[in-house]
């Protein structure tokens, strides 16, 4: 069962990776051949995270494993981390984001009917919810970062 899962994850990650590399090429002019090693590293990190999530019987999200493994393999103290950083720097973050939101747009079409039913009051309050957390966090971060002398 795990093997079948790994196969499905790998195929989907490769498809997603190819689409991102094309976007990476079109907008950021990084030819796919120089970005492929970095993409392979990222795909392996994801697979490692999914597998850990699958075999470790605690409720810890796979995305958290993935981020932690990504940090671990690129820390200055990790042997070979320069290569990981060098290769993955050829894959632009925003080139990964564009296909995510393209798939998201196609998927949220199904929520559109619910969205249309929301009244104007909801739209006002929901906008303030997002604005409130964003400004609140930025203000606190600003104060603490200034007190620490980081900015």
């Amino acid at each position: 069962m795990l093997l079948k899962n790994i196969q499905e994850w790998t195929l989907l990650l490769v498809i997603f990776g190819i689409i991102s590399l094309v976007g990476n090429w079109v907008n950021y002019e990084i030819v796919p051949t120089s970005a492929i090693p970095g993409m392979i590293v990222l795909i392996l990190v994801c697979l490692a995270g999914f597998i850990l999530n699958h075999i470790i019987p605690i409720n810890f999200p796979s995305v958290a494993y993935i981020a932690l493994i990504g940090v671990a393999v690129s820390m200055p103290w990790m042997p070979g981390s320069e290569k990981v950083v060098e290769w993955t720097s050829e894959v632009q973050l925003l080139a990964l984001a564009t296909p995510i939101l393209a798939y998201a747009g196609i998927s949220i079409g199904r929520s559109w009917a619910d969205f249309r039913k929301l009244g104007w009051k909801t739209l006002v309050v929901a906008s303030l919810v997002l604005l409130g957390t964003f400004i609140g966090s930025a203000l606190i971060a600003e104060i603490v970062l200034r007190m620490q002398g980081i900015i």
């Binding site: 990650l13 991102s20 993935i66 981020a67 990504g70």
Partner: peptide, 8 residues
Amino acid sequence: ALLLAKIG
């Protein structure tokens, strides 16, 4: 997942 690997 790929995005988080990149952020990592």
